[in-house]
Design a binder for these strands. Sequence first.
DNA 1: TCGAATTGTTTAGTTCCATAACAGTTACAG
DNA 2: CTGTAACTGTTATGGAACTAAACAATTCGA
Lengths: 150, 150
Amino acid sequence: MSDPETDPEILLRDFLGYHLKRAYVTVHADFRDIMGDAGLSTRVFSALAMVVGQQGITQSELARALGVERSGMVALIDELEGADLIRREPVPGDRRVQALQPTDRGVARFDELVALVRAHEARCFAGLDDTEKDMLLHLLHKVRMGGVTT
Amino acid sequence: MSDPETDPEILLRDFLGYHLKRAYVTVHADFRDIMGDAGLSTRVFSALAMVVGQQGITQSELARALGVERSGMVALIDELEGADLIRREPVPGDRRVQALQPTDRGVARFDELVALVRAHEARCFAGLDDTEKDMLLHLLHKVRMGGVTT
DNA sequence: TCGAATTGTTTAGTTCCATAACAGTTACAG
DNA sequence: CTGTAACTGTTATGGAACTAAACAATTCGA
């Protein structure tokens, strides 16, 4: 089993949640490092990806998709709009909502960022072969979906 | 594959890091819910587990083991000491360090908490069978260790 | 038509964490 | 020995990533 002299995580190692957090922190730190020059956080990148992937999505829809509060989206969208990567557009039928559209610059920038993120992921998950990566992704997805029946 | 109409996460779903974060947030939220009554955060629980598992560990060693800064440990240890779950003890040979020992109350409390956390994990990972849980734990451990060669 | 619900927004606050500096202590090179 | 480097716990400060509550404008629905 485990030798208390060499492994300090005697009791903690049995908890999946602990390993999940440590892995997340490790990967997130590397993301911050690689994106430091670009100045984009994970949330901002995720939001940009979502807008590029589903053009015309509203802020509320985006918040729901990303699992954060509406109020938290404002500063995030402000940042992306300030960088001229996306823009808010009024929607003819409903004057409450604003559809989010990526600018040409936003789409181009997103492609560059994807290359950076792919390199980051390649490095973070270098210890896993393709089969293991697929398995990990599948299991993580299952964990997220298992709790809440959308 | 994916239908853009039904799956808004068109571009994001290919990134392991995104799924890792979402799964972490989901599990962490459930942890907060179940431990809300006890009033202990994940970090405090982890620290208590570590002290119980390796009695006499110093604050610096604990910080290294948990992957946080020394300065961040102080308030955390204060909280545990204030709740009479652990105590700081001087070490004969070295007047700089303080060995952390769990109190009897701390050990008893930890056992109660472990039961809570096991229930929490059972619920969060209910969608996975035992083989999948083992696989997930193994993969997450590999991710954390792959990046940094300690 | 009038109350309920939704949208984007602001404000305020929480939590978790890092960075930098510090005084006290120990280790070590010369 | 001695002076310097390194390490310990600690404080102060601040930032990042949220959440909760309230708000006006708008739309929906009975």
